[in-house]
């Protein structure tokens, strides 16, 4: 692996690690929130919807700053997490996971929610009349039918997490080998004269990963359309 320099290689590995964790951590909550938004009528539904979508419209630097305010080592939640679980987020790769997860969350929820809304509630009702509890109905009818939507949501969230820059750099800074992801590495390289080829290599990696993610998500969406209509 001499094609990439050690710091570039570290940035690629860290980006993949952060993106995978961000998707894994936000998936259970994403499915739950999507289900609640798609199927339940309750007071505050629009508020929840707005909160979920907030990272999409806020400047990422604001999101990162808010994370720092709440999850910094001397901030209330940050201090609690460190004392209780020994989990430090600020200026660590774990913080990059949190920032990426929050920025990718709206995309994931949106995709899963659309899949749930495409499932005919009459099917769920039929399952209930056959004796299945609500939870069992979800596990055996709703979930299998939305798997393609969930996968598409994961791919989108993964791509978003790979490319997250603003909130990440604000919350965990840009420390090579520690918190430097591909986008922050590209940003750092751009400040250094004569590192055009290194920049180009990382840009290509970034483009390749994003295109792959988009293609996979398109393919999933097509499969979902076929499955639900069939």
């Amino acid at each position: 692996m001499n094609f990439f320099g050690p710091e570039e290689w570290a940035a690629i590995k860290l980006s993949l690690l952060v993106a995978v964790w961000a998707v894994a951590v936000s998936l259970p909550l994403g499915v739950y929130v999507a289900y609640v938004l798609a199927r339940k009528q309750f007071w505050g539904r629009q508020v929840l919807n707005a909160v979920v979508h907030l990272p999409l419209v806020l400047p990422p630097v604001v999101t990162g700053y808010v994370l720092l305010l709440w999850f910094g080592r001397r901030a209330p939640i940050g201090e609690f997490l460190e004392n209780t679980f020994g989990l430090v987020l600020a200026f660590r790769w774990t913080g990059a996971v949190l920032a990426a997860a929050i920025m990718a969350f709206p995309l994931m929820v949106r995709s899963i929610r659309l899949a749930i809304e495409a499932v005919d509630p009459k099917l769920e009702q039929a399952a209930e009349t056959l004796g299945a509890s609500r939870f069992y109905v979800f596990a055996t009818v709703t979930l299998p039918l939305i798997i393609p939507g969930i996968l598409a949501g994961c791919v989108l969230a993964f791509a978003k997490a790979l490319g997250e820059f603003g909130a990440t750099i604000t919350f965990v800074a840009n420390i090579p080998n520690k918190t430097q992801t591909i986008p922050s590495a590209i940003y750092a390289l751009m400040q250094v004269p004569g590192s055009e080829t290194a920049t180009a290599r990382l840009v290509m990696v970034s483009v390749a990963l994003s295109v792959c993610a988009l293609l996979v998500s398109e393919w999933m969406a097509n499969r979902m359309a076929k499955k639900v209509s069939g």
Binding site: A126, A127, L130, A132, V228
Partner: peptide, 19 residues
């Protein structure tokens, strides 16, 4: 609740599980 009523329901549409 519906799932504990011990009823069978045949609807106008078949409502078979497509998967």
């Amino acid at each position: 609740p519906v799932h504990k009523r011990g009823i069978g329901y045949v609807f106008q549409e078949p409502r078979l599980f497509p998967h």
